[in-house]
Design a binder for these strands. Structure first.
Length: 841
RNA sequence: GGGUGAGUGGCGAAAUUGGCAGACGCGCCAGACUUAGGAUCUGGUUCCUCACGGAUUGGGGGUUCAAGUCCCCCCUCGCCCACCA
């Protein structure tokens, strides 16, 4: 049964062999099975950038460990993977290396798949999704049209980042510190027609949904912050001498009597109409200055506040006062109404502006007990207080005033309470080639027409030029752009833009459930069985983009009746980043691929190393090699892991004959000596700790616990002369249990050893061991004895000893005695099973 | 500025509810076996002190018999958001 075993451990041969067996037997493919509870585990799929690095390895090893663990626990586990294959780098590579983005992408995918396999990840490759393939993005287009039909996709003119040198629109990611990534010219804003998804309509549900999912608090906080709900009042201001009015939004209606000026965003449409002829040049000067700024500079808090007077005045609807109207660089067109009422006494930005332009400051909220001096104050008073200078509202606490003034505005129909969100609609259009073509046509007669279902997918043309300048690359393909209107048969042009790649990642978890189905995006039965995703693992950087978009998308599908849940991911876990020299390891900052470690020490060692080096949720510092000044290609700590695996291997190799499958039959009834009992106790204590720590995603301590067990087994001597000796029974249990716990972390070595020992070949599905609490219970305890909180002695006592006996033993302990002689004992604290503390004076 | 996480030996770190600070591992030191191999095994390793002993979880205060852990103030670092009206 048992076969030959080399004394030395050669991971390379073993690992290749098992990877091939797993592939050939399709071992990790999951099918629906109503007899088992399902577990849908997903990690965030990778962008095929070329090589995996240790950031990926950390993410995907966590995933593989949890998926394997859940499989051992009896779940029907689906653990798929795929590639987020559209995106900008492929296009840049195309321009730079004269290679088609598709070829570059597919080459990288092939390489990364090889690396995934070499790590021994148990993916269900049959369910793989590659987003740049037509059978996937066809459904992006179909969903887009469904959203359009529901009124959730719409077209709007809006400002985009524009590089005047490249003559092209840029994605936000291409704008680095206000500079075009490619040509290093400053980026400006330009108005363009773009497609948007109405995510703002789901703001309230996105907030409410947080209650139904168990996600980390910080991610929920980030999303809430991003959605940015604020309650306030929106009300109208008339312009003096005009029939025009404009609306402002404020969260501080209680300060309305303190308004001393108004500010419009420089882009506000009313500016042209109200600016007086004397002020035109000044206003135009500021407008062009602001237009030149990039969005990033514009939004910088430390940007000097600048404004220009329009020459017009507005009428305060509450008291009829006239206040000047300015434009200023600190008011944004795309939040609220693009206009604000300015209360310098109680808003810091307004205060700075008022001081600079010599605008009066009127105090309307007085802090409790003191008076403010409008001339002397050096900062706005933003807290609550009592209303002053506010007509009939004087004397009220400001929070009451808030409500009363809002009531009055509603009664007099000046304005009403509203809620504003920071969240903006999701801009889907990208002036890029390597993405999903937007399936919309523009007919001269019929206007905007969606591509009919039977013409999907709209494929990407190959007769395009990657010049890196001019318009969206698709416009260079005449064969793509010109088509026929499905309504009237006349000439139509296609939308030249492609979709944001966040569209691709908003539903890939649904496609994993039905990867091959052709006539719909997924089968309802598959979704019903597998969804929602039980655990989703990935980086925190996706907190406010991908993870909001995917939730919105699922809610929208729910409302269309396509799915019957509205939260896609029940549980979320964020692994920490891998840093090198304190900076995040990424392709740009010198990422280290796993190849050297895998080649030298094997995938099992690589997997354990990355799990052992830091708690999974926290930052892990990879380390800089002092010899090169660069991140280690092979970090020194890997030696410890290699030793650990080597010791396990040698222990089995040297004692192979001692291991007997039949240990199970006798372990419960055997009379054991203290050494045997101690080993068995440690085995079961380890099972309990390991299980508990895997459940709480604390893998570093899991590995430490297994190392401790190995140390315990190492110091235990089995009897190799008599393989039937009783001592070999707990030894066999210990070694088998260690291996079974190790298997999610180091599956290759465990498969190999199990095969050698003749343990069931269906290893990945072997049940997870259960720790016996009774066996794990200690027989005696070492109790610290403190005097005044200082450790003075230790006592070994039997478990369950009563308080009085313990106190007695402590007081009679020789090394304690010298600290309590000649002083009076104030108090004795005895915590059963924990400690004794004698307080003396 | 807002949010959020963190700060423990030479290094990575451990310590579910307040109860022996430093588990486990790296590195280092000593030894064993080897006729120097970066293999393996054994012992040691927070700091100060020859020692007795003392100090110690970023700093300072507090609560408690007892604080890395709870409370208050401060410092430093990471990440996310950021003139949001």
């Amino acid at each position: 049964m048992s076969r030959e075993m080399n004394d030395r451990y050669f991971p390379q041969e073993i690992e290749k062999k098992w990877q091939q067996i797993w592939d050939e037997t399709n071992l990790y493919h999951a099918e629906m099975n109503e007899d088992k509870p399902k577990y849908y585990f997903m990690d965030m799929f990778a962008y095929p950038s070329g090589d995996l690095h240790w950031g990926h390895i950390r993410n995907y090893t966590i995933g593989d460990v949890v998926a394997r663990y859940k499989r051992h626990c009896g779940y029907n586990v689906m653990h798929p993977t795929g590639f987020d294959a559209f995106g900008l780098p492929a296009e840049n590579a195309a321009i730079k290396r004269k290679v088609h983005p598709r070829d570059w992408t597919m080459m990288n995918i092939a390489n990364m798949q090889k690396q995934f396999r070499a790590m021994g990840y148990g993916y269900d490759w049959q369910r793989s999704v590659v987003t740049c393939q037509p059978d996937y993005f066809k459904w992006n287009q179909w969903f887009f049209i469904q959203l359009f039909k529901k009124g959730l996709a719409y077209k709007k003119r809006s400002a985009v980042n524009w590089c005047p040198d490249c003559q092209t629109a840029l994605a936000n990611e291409q704008v680095v510190d206000g500079i075009c990534e490619r040509c290093e010219h400053p980026v400006v804003k330009r108005m363009m027609e773009q497609w948007y998804f109405r995510i703002t309509e789901y703001a309230e549900r996105l907030l409410a949904g947080h209650d139904n999912i168990s996600w980390p608090d910080d991610i929920v906080a980030m999303q809430k912050n991003w959605i940015g709900k604020s309650q306030g009042v929106e009300f109208a201001w008339k312009i003096n001498g005009h029939d025009k009015a404009f609306r402002v939004f404020t969260t501080r209606p209680d300060t309305v009597y303190g308004v001393t000026f108004m500010v419009l965003a420089p882009e506000h449409p009313l500016v042209d109409e109200i600016t007086t002829s004397e002020q035109i040049s000044e206003v135009q000067k500021l407008r062009s200055e602001v237009a030149k700024l990039s969005e990033i500079d514009r939004a910088a808090t430390d940007l000097e506040k600048k404004g220009a007077f329009t020459g017009a005045h507005a009428v305060n609807p509450m008291n009829g006062e006239l206040v000047p109207i300015y434009i200023a660089n600190y008011v944004m067109m795309d939040y609220g109404t693009g206009a604000i009422m300015a209360v310098p006494a109680h808003d810091q930005r307004d205060f700075e502006f008022a001081r600079k332009y010599d605008i009066p400051v009127t105090i309307v909220i007085a802090p409790e007990g003191t008076d403010l001096d409008a001339f002397k104050m050096t900062a706005a008073f933003v807290a609550e207080g009592n209303m002053v200078n506010s007509a009939e509202f004087d004397g009220m606490p400001s929070d009451d005033g808030w409500e009363k003034i809002a009531d009055k505005m509603e009664e007099t129909e000046i304005g009403n309470r509203t809620i504003n969100y920071r969240l903006r609609d999701w801009c889907i259009s990208r002036q890029r080639y390597w993405g999903t073509p937007i399936p919309m046509l523009y007919c001269e007669k019929c206007g905007i027409v969606p591509v009919p279902d039977e013409q999907l997918p709209v494929l990407l043309p190959d007769d395009i030029e990657f010049t890196g300048s001019g318009q969206s690359p698709l416009t260079t393909s005449e064969s793509f752009m010109n088509t026929t209107c499905p309504n009237c048969g006349g000439h139509a042009r296609r939308d030249a833009d492609t979709m944001d790649t966040f569209m691709d990642s908003s539903w890939y978890f649904l496609r994993y459930c039905s990867p091959q189905v052709e006539d719909k995006p997924f089968n309802p039965e598959d979704i019903k069985y597998w969804m929602p995703v039980d655990m989703y693992v990935g980086g925190r950087e996706h907190a406010t983009m991908h993870l909001i978009y995917a939730r919105f998308f699922t809610m929208a599908l729910h409302d269309m009746g396509l799915v019957d849940f509205d939260e896609p991911f029940t549980r979320l876990f964020n692994q920490g980043i891998v840093t090198a020299g304190g900076k995040k390891m990424s392709k740009r900052s010198g990422a280290v691929p796993p190849n050297d470690v895998v080649n030298d020490y094997g995938a099992d060692a690589a997997r354990i190393f990355i799990m052992f080096m830091a708690p999974a949720g926290e930052r892990a510092e990879w380390g800089i090699d002092p010899a090169t000044g660069k991140p280690y290609t092979v970090p020194p700590g890997i030696e410890g892991i290699a030793r650990f695996l080597n010791r396990i291997w040698r222990m089995v190799a040297l004692n192979k004959a001692v291991y007997r499958l039949e240990w199970r039959d006798s372990i419960e009834v055997l009379e054991m000596g203290p050494l045997e009992r101690a080993l068995r106790r440690k085995t079961h204590q380890t099972i309990i700790k390991v299980t508990h720590d895997i459940e709480r995603m604390q893998f570093n301590t899991v590995i430490a616990a297994m190392m401790e067990l190995l140390n315990e087994i190492s110091s235990f001597s089995p009897d190799s002369n008599d393989i039937y000796a009783d001592v070999n029974v707990p030894w066999s249990e210990a070694i088998e249990m260690l291996l079974r716990m190790l298997s999610p972390f180091a599956p290759h070595i465990v498969c190999e050893i199990f095969d050698i020992l003749g343990i069931d070949g269906d290893m990945p599905y072997l049940p997870w061991p259960t720790g016996d609490v009774k066996v794990a219970a200690n027989e005696s305890l070492e109790i610290p004895i403190q005097v005044n909180g200082k450790l003075r002695s230790k006592l070994v006592v039997p478990v369950g000893i009563d308080k009085d006996t313990m106190q007695e033993l402590a007081l009679n302990d020789d090394s304690v005695k010298k600290y309590i002689e000649g002083v009076s004992i104030v108090k004795i604290i005895v915590v059963p099973g924990k400690l004794v503390n004698i307080v003396v004076k």
